[in-house]
């Protein structure tokens, strides 16, 4: 349905990059230690920005959009994610 020009609705649809490349907001970056990672996907479940991607049996981080909030490092049961300074 095409909408009339003045019609505007309070709706948001999930999409990549609606707020720009939020990776630039990052002060600390999560780095996955594959020696320790057991592939439990807890980080994938908890990431509020959907920037933990499933990769082989484990995960990797989408650094274009990851804001570096650290939730993944916090929930990792085997401490396989380290927060590393961007400086």
């Amino acid at each position: 349905m095409s909408l009339l020009e003045y019609q505007y609705f309070p709706v948001t649809r999930p999409g990549k990059g609606a707020g720009g490349k939020t990776g630039l907001w990052r002060v600390y970056r999560p780095v996955v230690n594959y020696q320790k990672c057991v592939g439990c996907r807890a980080c994938f479940m908890f990431c509020p920005e959907n920037t933990i991607l499933l990769w082989q049996d484990k995960v990797r981080v989408d650094y274009d959009y990851c804001k570096g909030c650290g939730v993944c490092a916090n929930v990792c049961p085997v401490k396989a994610i380290e927060m590393v300074s961007e400086q």
Binding site: Q7, F9, P10, V11, T12, R13, P14
Partner: peptide
Amino acid sequence: PYVVDPEEPLGMG
């Protein structure tokens, strides 16, 4: 104007 549908998620408000 729009329908809330779990198959095609969107946020209202």
